[in-house]
Structure formats: C-alpha cells, structure tokens
Simulated scan of single mutants.
Amino acid sequence: MATPAFEDIAETFEFLDDWEDRYRHVIELGKAFPDLDPAFQVPAFKVDGCASQVWLRPMIEGQGAAARFDFQGTSDAMIVRGLIAVLHALYAGLTLSEVGRVDAQAELARLGLNDHLSSQRSNGLRAMVQRIRETAATAAA
C-alpha cells in the first residue's frame, strides 16, 4: 500500500547496489526535504525515543477517517532528516484510515533499512512511525 512517492524511492534503492550509496541517497532526501519552521520545534511536536532531536508536525485536511494526512518535520541529524523524508513519502496524502493500515516495517524493509541502521536509529524510526500512527488514529476518532 505504498504511495507513488515511496515507490519512487524503492525503485531508486533497487538501482543502488551498496548501502553506502543508499545511505547517501537518504541524506540527499533529507537535504531536499523542506525544513520545519523553528516556531514548531516545540515539545508538543517532539518525538520521544529518538537519539537525535526530532519534530513532526501533523497537518490534517478534512474530518474523520477520510481526512488526508500530511506532516512537516525536521531533525538535527541529516540521516534522520532523510528518514523523515522517507516516512513522508510513505504516508503523505493517505487518508487517516489508510495510515493505520500501512505496514511500515515491511515497506521500510524493502529499502534494507532494517539491516543497516544502528539500533538507536531503528528505535527512533519506530518512534516516528508510532507517532504518525497515533496521530492519525486520534484525528480519525
């Protein structure tokens, strides 16, 4: 159930043979991802469980389960900004009910992230996915 934007990332990863190239690509995605206004880098949007500083600001259009999910985000670590960009590609534009049905672990495994991120980065990635899912579930209720 990946979005076209995520499929583009997955296709690019298929062409990149080694993890160093993939790692650089994730960093490039982070550099290209729009920055979050510092006014929104506040405790309410901070994601706990990440080794780096991470903020995700949800933006929901509409009402109920059919509302569209989007978010802005940033981190003080470039690789994490890239992971935020990957998650944005995975979730942005989905309905709130679709967000809950995304198997993020399986989708991210297609990129090989599970095998190459440190345990701290993996925990942070899980924390970001959990925050996205909880935000969507709360907004859909």
Rank of each mutant, 00 (worst) to 15 (best):
T135I: 08
V54K: 03
P43S: 00
C50P: 02
D17T: 12
T12E: 15
R131K: 15
K31T: 10
L83S: 08
G93T: 11
R101A: 15
V80F: 05
V80K: 00
R133Q: 15
S119G: 06
T74P: 00
R110A: 09
T74E: 14
R126C: 04
L94F: 06
E20K: 14
A89N: 08
L16W: 02
R57P: 01
G82A: 09
F45I: 00
T12V: 14
A89C: 06
L125A: 07
S75M: 07
A51L: 09
G62T: 04
R68I: 15
A39N: 00
L113N: 06
L125V: 09
A89E: 06
L96C: 12
D21P: 03
I84P: 07
F45W: 05
S75F: 07
E28A: 15
V80Y: 04
R131E: 08
A140W: 02
F15W: 09
F40A: 04
A109Y: 03
P58Y: 01
S118V: 10
A32S: 14
A2M: 15
I9R: 01
A5R: 14
A10S: 14
Q120Y: 13
L90V: 09
M1L: 13
A106W: 03
Y91I: 13
A139L: 05
I84H: 08
S97F: 05
Y23I: 01
L111H: 03
L96P: 13
T74D: 15
A77K: 04
G124Q: 12
I79T: 03
A106G: 13
I132S: 13
A77D: 12
M1E: 11
R68Q: 12
H116L: 08
P43E: 03
A44M: 05
G30E: 05
R22Q: 12
L113F: 15
L87C: 05
T135P: 08
L83G: 08
A51M: 14
A92W: 05
T135S: 12
F6T: 12
M59I: 07
Q130N: 14
T95Q: 13
R101S: 15
Q105P: 03
R110S: 08
S75N: 06
F33T: 04
L96A: 11
A39G: 01
A32T: 02
F33S: 09
D103K: 08
N123L: 07
L108M: 11
W55M: 00
V86Y: 05
A109C: 01
I79L: 14
A139P: 03
L36V: 01
T12M: 13
H25K: 14
L113V: 10
E20V: 08
C50Y: 00
L96D: 09
G82E: 07
R121E: 12
A104W: 11
Q63M: 12
S75Q: 06
H88E: 08
A32Y: 05
R131H: 13
A65W: 04
K46V: 03
Q63L: 11
A10V: 10
A137M: 02
D18Q: 09
A32P: 02
D18W: 01
